[in-house]
Amino acid sequence: MSIGQETVLEANEARVVYNEDSDNPVEAVRSISLDLRKGEVLALVGPSGCGKTTLFNAIAGLIPLQGGRVSVGGIEVEKASGHVGYMLQKDLLLPWRSVIDNVTLGLEVRGKPKGEAKKIAQELIERYGLGGFEHSKPSGLSGGMRQRVALMRTLAFEPEVILLDEPFSALDFQTRILLQSDVKRIIREEGKSVILITHDIGEAISMANRIVVLTNRPATVKTVHEVPWGDEVTDPVAVRDRPEYQEMFSTIWQELELTNGQQGKTMKGAA
């Protein structure tokens, strides 16, 4: 599956302000414009607390914009309607449901008949290596397996865009690398368009096609980088051996350093 020219998500000068009408409004996102092409993985990296998650919530339609617009599949986002699939650092599996019943959650919400939903879930579970665990409770699974179930729950209802909000940051190093390559492979195979939020520059470079570096809060787009190997190298471990990887890593690192430095200065200035 290669990246198409078709744009599935577009943000145009999106702006989010909390408590706009109160005495101290908090501007979380100043102005973000970006586009996501079909089948593409776009990574957002930025200093912590810069408003990445706020942007996610706006894209999912969970919070309103105070300016600009976001559209998914050509339709402007006005409220949450299941057009995006969410995956967070917490797997958010329901402990009282078995693996398969967790995977069908999104389908149930959409009113899919139970039998059909189970069939879809069963297929996903088998295809991605959790066969035999469909009737286990999440408490019996490892962290990596749980995140995989969460990914399947997201894939099952076929959202147009998948939002990954630091999905691997709670895992140990080895599991993280393994899951990164699994997830990358799965989303490629399924032809999904993905926005990935991460703190981990290495993760961004090895998983994404393009990397958007954000400034401090209120967030704006600072730079955009395109990975030079396109879709040729898909293994996140192999990517790390490329000479361009190191170069890109240090460029982004410096850009982030710079924003952090500025933050330090403004904080001193304020004090």
Binding site: A60, L62, A80, G82, K90, L92, L105, G106, E108, V109
Partner: peptide
Amino acid sequence: VDQDLIRLMKSLGATQWQTFRKIVMPGSV
């Protein structure tokens, strides 16, 4: 009940009643 779970249900386009039946009720057991 974990607010992120409620957020997840909302993002799926769930109605308040669906969130109640599928998340809040079993979560309160």
